[in-house]
Every structure is written in C-alpha cells, then in structure tokens.
Design a protein around this nucleic acid. Structure first.
Lengths: 200, 200
DNA sequence: CCATAGTTTTGACGCAAATCAAAAAAAAGA
DNA sequence: TCTTTTTTTTGATTTGCGTCAAAACTATGG
C-alpha cells in the first residue's frame, strides 16, 4: 500500500501529518499509532467511493485530487452537494456519523490519492485525541458554514450571481472542473451555464 | 424572573429539565447548578433576539412559541434559514460558536417563553457535562441534516414540490405560521405560494 | 362598532432558466 | 493519423416564478 510499509516515510502520510500539525497542533509522538489507522488508496477519476442507500464506513483525507458528494433525485438528475480538494476530509457525513443509510454518493472527479479511515477508528481517534476531536468539531462547524452559504445563494441569487460568487469563493471548482460539474454544483443545466458565461 | 426565585420549581425550567432527561439522560443531581445558568425571558411576537453583524452572545431554549433565523440579502429581502418550535435550542449558531459577527438575525414569530444562556456558560456546560456535550454534538449534526435537506430541495424541486415536502416533513411551519413566513422559508414570494396552494 | 392596518388572493405581463434538438469543438482511443 | 466519444455552444420554444397592481379578506385597537 505505502511505498515501503512504513506510513511515516510515505509522502502521502506526510501530507496528512503536515495538515494535522498546521491546523490542529498535532503532537509528533502520536504519529505511528494514528497513521496505522489510515490506508492509502490511489483511485481513478469518476470512481464511486460510496453509494447512496448504503451505510458509509469510511472517511477520506484527500492528498491529491478532487472528490464530490451528490444525490440523484427522483428525476434521475445528479445534484452535487459538496466538492472537496486537497487537504480536506470528505465522506457522506450524515451517514458516516449516524451509521444509517446515506442519501448521497461520494465520487472522485479527478484521479486521486486518498487516505481512508474506518468509521470506528475515526471516532476512536475523535474520542481519545485532542487533535481529532478538534478536527471533528471544526469539520462539523465548517460544514454548517458552507451549507448555510449555499442555501443563502440558492434562496437569494440568480444563476449568474451564484456563478460569480462561486468564482470568488471557490475558484478551484470553476477552474479545475468541467462545466457539467460546475453546473451541477450551481443547481442549473450545462446549457444555462454555457450561456451565462457567454454573456459575461 | 422565575415565579418564586427557584428555577427548579418553575414550569418553564421543568420543560427544559424534561427535555434534557428525555433526550440526553440528564442526571437529576446536577439540576440547580445547571439551571442557574439559564434565564427566563417572555417575549412578544416579532421580537428581534439577535441582529445580524453582531456577535451572538446567547442561545435560547424554546419552552413555548416559535423562533426563526433569517438574513436580509442585498436586495433587502428576508430569507429564512431556520424555524424552530418548542423543545429546541436556537441561535445564530455560526456566530455563537465562533464569536464572530453573524450574517443572520434571530426573531420570534409568536409570543414566546424562552430560556436563554450565555455563550461562555453554554460552552462551559458543553465541556464539563456529558449531557450538554451530547446535546451540542447532536445539534450540530441535526443542523447538518436539515441544511442538507433544504439544499437538496432547493437544488432539485419546484416550488410546489418543496411546499408538499415541507407540509410532510415540518407541518407545523405550514399550519402555525403566516403565508409570508412559509414563503420566505420556501424561497418564493407570497403571491407564488398563494397560487401554488390554489391549484392544489 | 367602525377604522385602519396587515394578509391573502387574483390578474396581466416579463424574464430567467429549463427543455429539446442539433451543431461545433475538444478529448480520448485505436 | 483518423475515428469515436464526450463536452460545449447555439437555437427555438416553453414554463415556472417574479413583479407590480389592485381587490378581497382578516385582524386589531380605539
């Protein structure tokens, strides 16, 4: 899985390590015990990491690449709920937290290098390591901030305003992903997005 | 404030007590110490409990009545983000949590009996009482579930579908509140709501 | 009780975005 | 390289919802 069997020497684990040190004052001595719970996976673009209606068993830390969560409504259209890039954890969180069947799918949008961790291991870290309890709380709070923002844009802006706002707030989504994905995130059709970009 | 100075004998504190016992296995012996941190307030309909751009200092437990959170967008329209009835905590949570200026207002929609608690007291309870740390985590998770649901409805449903869905999922909102409030929650105008109800 | 204010309904019209369809452009494979 | 598939753009039409305005209905207070 890792290059030489020792996570501490693997560059992907280094990325996670650095992330924990930078944002959650991760203490060095815990390294091995913590990183043993993570497993490296290298997956192609458009890989489904989690299917809706299943109970979500893993959370993923993105070392490289891009992952989205989306649900398919009764008309069969896909609605993107969240898009994450490098240095973020991603999962079907309501299901991951409550261990009930999820409403959403989790899928890569680029070839991605991920570190996955089982639900039980994750919560054992959350319960026993200050670093991870901070990380968990912070993630819940951040998720709330982003949900609130998106709901606000949906309630109060036109498609064009939402596009401009997205370009400002999460430029990576617009710059790295296809129109199809951007449109799905904005809650409009590809055609509308194309037109809206044309008339500046 | 309370009828006779002792929170433990006041009916509004009884409601909170029962709520904590029922949902978060609150241990009886803690009562006085905990309830001393709450303050009873009886407020009229349409009272502003918190103004946007301020740092939110209180969370409110609703003993009776109804409270909404909303933001006013640049066009001056009010967009309702959340509506809570009896037996719920409500606040401008992102601001309450992070102690940064809030984007939203908090306002009563009915005459309401509330128990308010200061931010510092609330988090001291969260940090020292299993009951409140459970409550806090559960609230964050619930907030996430509701945000996700609302975002999903905004992304994938027409106004009429959203109305039907709301009627099923949160009938109180439709039954207890004015069209104006329901429309604001659904993200449409009052006129549209009226028409949409007319053509069944 | 009436008077005034607030809420809900109805009507006429406009526009943003959806839909269906097909062409053009770009990317991926052989 | 040329072929095939995928993505993006353009066109014609429909539609759901907003806007503005006025009427009908419902509260509320003096």
């Amino acid at each position: 899985m890792t290059k030489n069997g020792d996570p501490l020497l693997d560059e992907n684990f280094q990325i996670l390590h650095q992330f924990l040190v930078n944002h959650y004052s991760f203490p060095d001595r815990d390294s091995r015990h913590v990183f043993n719970k993570f497993q490296f996976v290298d997956v192609k673009k458009n890989t489904t990491l989690h299917q809706q209606n299943q109970i979500c068993e893993y959370a993923y830390f993105i070392c490289q690449g891009c992952v989205r969560t989306f649900f398919t409504n009764r008309k069969g259209e896909e609605n993107t709920r969240y898009i994450a890039f490098e240095n973020n954890f991603v999962s079907a969180f309501s299901s991951f937290i409550t261990q009930t069947p999820s409403l959403e799918n989790v899928q890569t949008l680029e070839n991605s290098k991920l570190l996955k961790i089982k639900q039980s291991d994750f919560f054992s870290l959350v319960n026993h390591h200050a670093t991870f309890s901070k990380l968990y709380l912070h993630s819940l709070e951040q998720a709330q901030v982003i949900s609130t923002w998106r709901l606000e844009t949906m309630l109060s802006m036109t498609a064009k305003e939402r596009y401009r706002d997205l370009l400002e707030r999460m430029p990576q989504i617009v710059l790295r992903l296809s129109n199809k994905q951007v449109a799905s995130f904005l809650g409009i059709t590809q055609e509308s997005l194309s037109r809206l970009k044309a008339r500046k």
